[in-house]
Design a protein around this nucleic acid. Structure first.
Lengths: 204, 204
DNA sequence: TTACAATATGACTAGAGATTCATATGAATA
DNA sequence: TATTCATATGAATCTCTAGTCATATTGTAA
């Protein structure tokens, strides 16, 4: 958590620091990211940085916190609050759709998330013992979906939740290194959902 | 590529160096990994290290090379050479199965691969312009599978190949942080293939 | 045994980057 | 204006590690 002094700063200056930090952490993994570069790009003295933050990790955690917060704003809150009203696939569509919107509008935040996921030590330091928040979320959805009768009763929620999680990561990746797919978001989502619902086997 | 002196070493000593390197690179991303630690754990002097390798990257590339080589030995060569004889799903099963065997027998190599995938710069430095070898492979399989008539003609090979790639990464992850799933390898593979073939929608 | 080549060693150098700190600045207040 | 307090600054310090190098050791062949 930043020090009080940071929040006392004019918003424009806070913004510059945050932007510079996002740029640096999106480009380099935590250990390679440099405070010097962040201070330079934000147009502040290196010493000032330490007026605002305890250390590099302090800033990093703050950026992650902002990222998670922002990500949440992309999800349809009404739908999440009334999950029982919607089918599993409706909810899944919304989750992916929000993911794609988030990735498109905040492309620099995607690599930051990726790099964090890969640094297990740092990840646990930030999120505690939760092994995988995303996977837990999908697991719960799957269990509810089974109860509702939307889903094949034979599937294992733990395993399938992990698969859905990876698939959703790949979604972020797709958008991130774009120019890859000649499809608009809806098409991508539709294809992914089709895959998840029906698999890829040819049917007669 | 290591210097000649490295290959002149008694095999046992080479082995110690490689083991120490794997341990270090499995624990820390490239930039955080320390030559000093590797030398210490291998029981050689730091100076000796530079008799064997040009620099840290030289060693790292070598470890990656060994990893790729080893990975290939896990794949059923006969099947790969005669792909046309097998159905898409037979081949996919073999690919995943080999992945799981590899991960189980070489757990330390998995995090090394993960960390490399995440360091795009390093990745490209090592593998050249190929954006994603794994994805290209799946894409080719999918195209062939469509021709053979194994697959839903509506699927998009580019997108689906990316999804299959993520799923196979998650497979490595699953094995790597085990104790997670109450299933043996076969069950995992079966469930994954079932997901890929049929999706998760309830059918009458 | 001596001379030469290859290898081993670890103290040393160089550089990078995080963090500290003494000092400067400037705004607010008495 | 003088004093205080918060913030700004960048030189200095501290730590860490990659990579070098002069020297020692070992092996080999004449």
């Amino acid at each position: 958590m930043p020090k009080e002094t940071f929040f006392n700063l004019p918003e424009e200056k806070q913004e510059r620091v945050i932007e510079a930090a996002i740029e640096e952490f999106a480009t380099y993994p935590f250990h390679k990211a440099r405070i010097t570069a962040i201070a330079d790009n934000a147009g502040i003295a290196k010493g000032s940085f330490y007026q605002y933050f305890k250390d590099k990790k302090d800033l990093y955690k703050y950026i992650i916190e902002l990222t998670v917060e922002k990500k949440l704003t992309y999800i349809n809150q009404e739908m999440m609050a009334n999950r029982e009203k919607y089918s599993f696939f409706q909810i899944l569509r919304e989750v992916y759709l929000s993911g794609i919107r988030f990735a498109e509008e905040n492309p620099r935040l995607i690599p930051i998330g990726f790099m964090l996921i890969n640094d297990k030590k740092l990840y646990h330091e930030i999120f505690g013992e939760y092994k995988d928040l995303s996977s837990d979320f999908f697991q719960q959805l799957l269990i509810q979906g089974k109860v509702k009768g939307d889903l094949d009763p034979a599937i294992d929620p733990v395993l399938v939740s992990k698969m859905l999680t990876s698939i959703s990561y790949s979604l972020g990746d797709l958008i991130y290194e774009d120019g890859k797919l000649d499809m608009n978001d809806m098409e991508i989502i539709d294809q992914m959902l089709h895959f998840i619902e029906n698999g890829i086997k040819k049917r007669e």
